[in-house]
């Protein structure tokens, strides 16, 4: 078997001293598990702390992160999640997901990662934009009142691209 080395997408050129800094990012959160939600939030919050503009767009089950009735009940996926290193049958036992979530929450608090409700509030305070996806809202029959107050609006995909203009988009 022959190995071909991938072509680097950003080859350093001797003339450019420093790559252009990122000034804006827009992150899509599409999954509703704890491990699906947190990475995007950490990246958005971290961007704001560096002075980078940030937008969050919650779609499909990612909306659980901003729904009042769901926000305090987000769990780690213990089934179908090879990263957990738990056999599928074991992961499916009653209480497994709650247990794993509890253990992870303790670990996260130890390294200063806030619980979800506090994190969403904090990200709102950083001035990041937070929006729910219009198509998902209509599909699940939701209204603006179902969401935490930090959500600035329910917007279409087109609106999202408008907000994201001039920056980078990350899908999680």
């Amino acid at each position: 078997m022959t190995m071909t080395s991938p072509t680097p997408t950003t080859s350093p050129t001797p003339t450019s001293a420093k790559p252009e800094a990122i000034t804006k990012i827009s992150i899509v959160i599409s999954k509703g598990s704890l491990d699906g939600i947190y990475p995007g939030l950490i990246m958005a919050n971290g961007a704001r702390a560096e002075g980078i503009g940030a937008n969050l767009f919650f779609t499909f089950f990612g909306m659980d992160a901003i729904l009042k009735r769901r926000i305090d009940h987000i769990k780690v996926a213990t089934v179908g999640n090879p990263g957990m290193h738990i056999p599928t049958l074991l992961g499916g036992l009653p209480g497994m997901s709650a247990l794993a979530t509890h253990m992870m929450a303790k670990k996260m608090e130890g390294i200063d990662i806030p619980p979800l409700g506090e994190f969403i509030e904090m990200i709102g305070d950083t001035g990041a934009g937070m929006y729910a996806c219009r198509a998902s809202v209509d599909m699940f029959g939701l209204t603006k009142d179902d969401f935490v107050p930090q959500i600035q609006g329910i917007i279409t995909v087109g609106d999202f691209y408008g907000l994201a203009a001039g920056g980078q988009i990350i899908f999680t």
Partner: peptide, 11 residues
């Protein structure tokens, strides 16, 4: 964030 608009951590 109002006091240090370029990011409190960094600025």
């Amino acid at each position: 964030y109002l006091l240090f608009p370029k990011g409190p951590a960094k600025m």
